[in-house]
Write a protein that binds this DNA or RNA. Structure first.
Lengths: 341, 341
DNA sequence: AATGTCTATGCAAAGGTTTGCATTATGAAG
DNA sequence: CTTCATAATGCAAACCTTTGCATAGACATT
């Protein structure tokens, strides 16, 4: 009979009416007679008519898709954020396209170009650790695409931002360690250039300073990347110092766990000889031995809020909304890898 | 000046030629004069012309997008598979849409309808643990959309499949436990109805049988879902038996780690009093104490192969390719949570 | 009877690109 | 000078839907 799927024209021909009438019937246009509408709807149902969204996209010049750019998804952090995003977006008319930058500026650039080509409607992004220049995001904004930045800040970029108070989290963590009697607290920092790295380092330093603990530059080591190897190397550097630290505050749980591995391997007791404290509170962090003290972040909520903010922009194309900056408070979770007060 | 983006018509008007000529120039049609092509290309470059993919999609009746349906991404397993998929697809012309079914048949159904509506070109799917009926996938196939199933089999569905030999992995694992002297080996099985659950259970049972160890029904407990709570409850049931097992072979690492937690809490030594063996080899499994013996699966490769198979179908629309069934061999990884032989 | 009002529907354009077929122009062959 | 072949380009349809404006018909008012 017919080739391909049923279109609005097929219904029109069958019913001897114009395609425009069919369209209006399907969209419940008020000017149509009820009988006409009913007849159209009945036939549409019978023929299993599926509107062609591709045609609609062209007409509306939008893809009904939002892009999510994250550095990776194999860890728990971004996966959980994405789950939060998805759970919000799934109830809207939008689809989600998840893109992995692999912590590479180049790849991030390629992704942005791609998203722009397919006429994405909005973008949620946690920039790669290499990204220092944000012009590619500005270009998106210039072509009318709202951009929401989450987790990692883009200093100087005017956009909606959903962040965590990393400074506060780090400050609390380090002050806690001081409170348990640690005198030589080291910091295993994240990759340089990340806003989160900077904030956590600053929190660490200010906590020391406030408590009149001298800052020892040797006790601050940054990992170049997030691999186990990177973390091991950095930890060894710390432990091989003449006077090894009695506490390690790590940039995140992943690094903290790698560090614990080495600490134990070198025969040092956790937390008696070396306390270890992480950041992120990944699900398995409570299962390792000793269970990891860490800083919890409301990841799922961050994802949900980011998505909601983006949706609100999409639904208010005309209105000029100010950029929102939401900062979540993290929470210190004390377990067994740190001493008691 | 002009409103909106530059189109092929703008270039045509500027150069006093027909839009079709511009199109052909841009696509290097052989019948065009070199001068014309060069002029068009130069102007396109100067005007920063971006082809409107939305128009192309409508014309070609395809979205240039493939859908990936997974139960969740917060664990390492599916995240790693997705990363493999992404790394293959990123070099093609296709975009990826990742969809989470949350282990729910209902949501999976909704996703499939949605993907079908946006005229997806192909689908990669690991079905939810609730899914028993595969008609929604068959409907996709009927409308010409290739479907590749990975990790979890869909019995009775004719499609490409990329699986792991779960039976073999389980068999090897249990036989190893027997070899270390364990006499009362329990199985913490996955949710019923999953092909992987069934295969691992079968491997467990056959390994016992082959080694003349009687199967004790009390030693087989299935978790209803993948939460920590579910695993804890199931483990307690095992340990509260009059004669508690001296080994636990768990459906996956997540469950194994929850189980270890309880075993330790009850004051039993791992592996001396109870051996524990998992499945999946998640990255953190080697960092818990004692480090977890498990069965490794080539997750990244599975993702890559699944994507490659789908692409090959997409590139050979006309050719009738037989359905492929690829089964990867898993590998036993012995660490400290099981005894030595 | 002429004019006006209202309701229900149709017409056609618009959105941007590709492509089979038609057309023009150019030069060569007869 | 025709005729034909060839090369280069244009025309218009097709993909499917929405929507502003036009129009037809029915009925009411003067």
């Amino acid at each position: 009979m017919k080739k391909g799927r049923v279109t609005i024209k097929d219904i029109a021909r069958e019913l001897n009416i114009a395609p425009s009438t069919v369209s209006r019937a399907l969209n419940d246009h008020p000017a149509l007679k009820k009988e006409t509408k009913d007849a159209v709807k009945a036939l549409a149902e019978a023929l299993d008519y599926q509107p062609n969204l591709l045609a609609l996209n062209l007409l509306q010049k939008k893809s009904n898709t939002i892009g999510v750019i994250v550095p990776e998804i194999t860890g728990h952090f971004f996966s959980a954020i994405i789950t939060g995003i998805q759970d919000v977006i799934v109830d809207s008319e939008y689809n989600i396209m998840i893109c992995l930058s692999n912590e590479s500026y180049e790849e991030e650039l390629t992704i942005v170009k791609r998203l722009s080509k397919i006429q994405i409607d909005g973008v949620l992004v946690a920039p790669s650790s290499e990204t220092k220049n944000f012009d590619h995001f500005r270009r998106l904004q210039k072509s009318g695409i709202p951009v929401v930045v989450f987790d990692r800040d883009c200093p100087g970029l005017e956009a909606d931002k959903v962040l965590v108070d990393d400074y506060f989290g780090a400050f609390q963590a380090v002050e806690y360690l001081i409170g348990t009697g640690c005198k030589n607290i080291a910091h295993l920092g994240g990759p340089l250039n990340l806003s989160t790295t900077e904030q956590r380092l600053q929190g660490y330093m200010d906590a020391l300073e406030k408590n009149k603990v001298p800052v020892n530059r040797d006790y601050i080591v940054h990992v170049p990347g997030f691999s186990h190897k990177d973390a091991v190397k950095a930890t060894k550097k710390l432990l091989e110092l003449q006077k090894h630290p009695d506490a390690i505050f790590a940039y995140n749980d992943k690094i903290a766990i790698s560090a614990m591995h080495i600490v134990k391997k070198m025969g040092l007791q956790i937390p008696d000889e070396v306390s270890v404290l992480g950041f992120d509170d990944e699900p398995h962090s409570s299962f390792i031995t000793p269970s990891l003290s860490t800083v919890w972040q409301p990841v799922y909520s961050m994802g949900m809020l980011s998505a909601r903010i983006l949706l609100s922009h999409l639904n208010n194309k005309n209105n000029i909304l100010d950029f929102r900056k939401e900062v979540f408070k993290p929470e210190l979770v004390i377990r067994a890898s740190s001493k008691e007060k």
